[in-house]
């Protein structure tokens, strides 16, 4: 198995036209989709809609990159979703509690961040501890933490939303104005993307994740501290997801125990459609950017064409299978 990064220049040049078409299949598919929607509904390429899509895609990007951190190591995180709900509820409760006590804004926001990221860290340590420490299958471990988080989020919130998240929090992570024309979620997504790019490509930890995913035994034999790195991967995944949860909480302005409902499957779908392989060791920030954009564009186009929600679900299912099949072709050709 050679991944794109390890291809030498002449090898790459020898690729046939078909090969290149396959490599570009996702961007091409996206362009074709947007243009054909444009023919029917010109609004799709209006500045407002494009900004809207980018905005939505930032959230998808954060969750999909969280998921990528563990998919790279041949794992996945089923608890991403219910953990996001728990983060949302916990941070909202911490903030509303302090607001009621009359605490200053800075303290309120700090408490929200600490509560949210703290929950994320705990989930990450639980998942990583069982996966890396005891060698239990990630599916089982994260299935367990999925249920634990589900119970926690509904218990501590009492089942309903936690209202009155302070405006200052929403301004900070959602609708504040820092730079004209660029929304805060987009800026956060870009920062996270740059950070992850550096982490995955220029640090020992990042490169080791690929090696662990490609061949766990080789990684261990080579003397990599695999367990510690695996642990970090799960921690990073849950922390990123928690941060995404805080962003969503800022957007809705309330702590929602059902916030993460479909996030788990969507995040895996976006990552995998972008080209992160469930076999581990293949993928990167670029893949997640494309995957998140694709998923968002698809649902945006269907919304604009007024496709009903049920039909959207069917089409999304078909597209996931087709996209992954194209990816499969791409990998066998490369």
């Amino acid at each position: 198995m050679t991944d794109a990064a390890s291809l030498s220049a002449p090898e790459a040049a020898r690729r046939s036209l078909v090969g290149w078409l396959l490599v570009l299949s996702l961007p091409l598919l996206m362009a074709v989709m947007e243009l054909s929607v444009y023919a029917v509904e010109p609004r799709v390429l209006s500045l407002r809609n494009i900004v809207n899509v980018l905005d939505q895609a930032s959230y998808a990007f954060v969750f999909a990159s969280a998921q990528m951190m563990v998919i790279l190591t041949r794992g996945f995180d089923l608890s991403l979703g219910t953990s996001v709900s728990t983060v949302s509820v916990a941070s909202a409760l911490a903030m509303t509690g302090l607001v009621a006590a009359g605490a200053p804004d800075a303290l309120v926001v700090a408490a929200g961040l600490i509560a949210g990221l703290g929950v994320g860290a705990l989930v990450g340590l639980f998942n990583g501890g069982f996966v890396a420490g005891l060698g239990i299958n990630p599916f089982v471990v994260t299935l367990g933490s999925l249920n634990i988080c589900l119970g926690l989020s509904t218990t501590i919130s009492g089942g309903g939303p936690v209202f009155n998240v302070p405006d200052v929090f929403s301004r900070l992570f959602y609708n504040g104005k820092l730079m004209p024309g660029v929304s805060i979620p987009i800026m956060i997504a870009v920062l996270i993307g740059l950070g992850l790019y550096f982490l995955l490509n220029h640090t020992t930890f990042g490169r080791s994740l690929y090696i662990i995913g490609n061949n766990p035994r080789a990684a261990r034999v080579a003397g990599l501290p695999s367990r510690r790195y695996l642990m970090f991967a799960y921690l990073a995944c849950s922390l990123l997801a928690a941060f995404g949860g805080l962003m969503l909480t800022a957007r809705t302005g309330s702590g929602e125990p059902n916030l993460g409902g479909s996030l788990m499957l969507e995040s895996i779908a976006a990552a995998v459609i972008g080209g992160v392989s469930l076999q581990g060791g293949v993928g990167g920030v670029g893949a997640v950017v494309f995957g998140a954009l694709f998923v968002t564009m698809l649902s945006n186009s269907m919304d604009l064409l007024e496709v009903g929600g049920y039909v959207q679900q069917i089409l999304l299912g078909c597209v996931i299978i087709i996209a992954i099949f194209l990816d499969r072709l791409r990998q066998t050709r490369a």
Partner: peptide
């Protein structure tokens, strides 16, 4: 994983 994720959505 992906196929059945897709067919789940379809069904």
């Amino acid at each position: 994983f992906i196929v059945t994720l897709g067919s789940m959505s379809i069904a």
